[in-house]
Computed example of a mutant assay.
Amino acid sequence: MSDQQLRVVVLISGSGSNLQAIIDEKEAGTLPIEICAVISNKEDVRGLERASHHGIPTKVLDHKHFNSREEFDQELMLVIDSFCPDLVVLAGFMRILTPEFTNHYLGRMLNIHPSLLPKYQGLHTHKRALEAGDKEHGVTVHFVTAELDGGPAVIQARVPVLDGDTESMLAARVLEQEHVIYPRAILWFAEGRLRMCNGQALLDDQIIHV
Rank of each mutant, 00 (worst) to 15 (best):
residue 8 V to T: 14
residue 37 A to R: 14
residue 205 D to S: 06
residue 76 L to M: 15
residue 163 D to Y: 13
residue 207 I to R: 15
residue 142 H to V: 04
residue 112 I to Y: 00
residue 142 H to T: 01
residue 127 K to C: 00
residue 6 L to K: 03
residue 17 S to D: 02
residue 58 T to Y: 10
residue 63 H to T: 02
residue 191 E to C: 08
residue 56 I to K: 06
residue 172 A to N: 11
residue 208 I to N: 09
residue 205 D to M: 08
residue 201 A to H: 09
residue 166 T to I: 08
residue 68 S to K: 09
residue 210 V to Y: 13
residue 62 D to T: 14
residue 65 H to L: 15
residue 41 N to V: 05
residue 75 E to S: 10
residue 145 T to Q: 00
residue 1 M to P: 13
residue 71 E to C: 06
residue 53 H to L: 12
residue 176 E to I: 05
residue 189 F to H: 06
residue 5 Q to I: 00
residue 184 R to T: 13
residue 76 L to F: 05
residue 54 H to E: 02
residue 206 Q to N: 10
residue 57 P to K: 11
residue 83 F to V: 07
residue 134 D to C: 06
residue 83 F to K: 03
residue 98 T to G: 02
residue 100 E to P: 07
residue 53 H to C: 12
residue 52 S to H: 12
residue 55 G to D: 06
residue 205 D to A: 02
residue 82 S to P: 12
residue 32 P to M: 04
residue 35 I to F: 00
residue 67 N to S: 12
residue 93 F to G: 04
residue 22 I to N: 04
residue 50 R to Y: 01
residue 57 P to S: 11
residue 209 H to G: 10
residue 13 S to L: 11
residue 68 S to D: 02
residue 185 A to R: 10
residue 3 D to P: 00
residue 151 G to K: 11
residue 207 I to D: 12
residue 167 E to G: 04
residue 124 H to G: 05
residue 167 E to P: 09
residue 206 Q to F: 02
residue 94 M to C: 01
residue 193 R to G: 05
residue 162 L to I: 00
residue 164 G to F: 12
residue 68 S to C: 07
residue 41 N to L: 07
residue 133 G to H: 08
residue 52 S to L: 15
residue 178 E to H: 07
residue 93 F to L: 09
residue 138 G to L: 11
residue 142 H to Q: 07
residue 193 R to V: 03
residue 144 V to E: 00
residue 141 V to C: 09
residue 9 V to W: 11
residue 69 R to T: 10
residue 26 K to D: 00
residue 53 H to Q: 04
residue 139 V to C: 15
residue 26 K to F: 01
residue 89 V to A: 15
residue 152 P to V: 05
residue 73 D to W: 13
residue 138 G to C: 02
residue 163 D to I: 00
residue 1 M to Q: 14
residue 30 T to I: 09
residue 38 V to G: 03
residue 137 H to E: 01
residue 67 N to H: 13
residue 140 T to D: 01
residue 94 M to A: 07
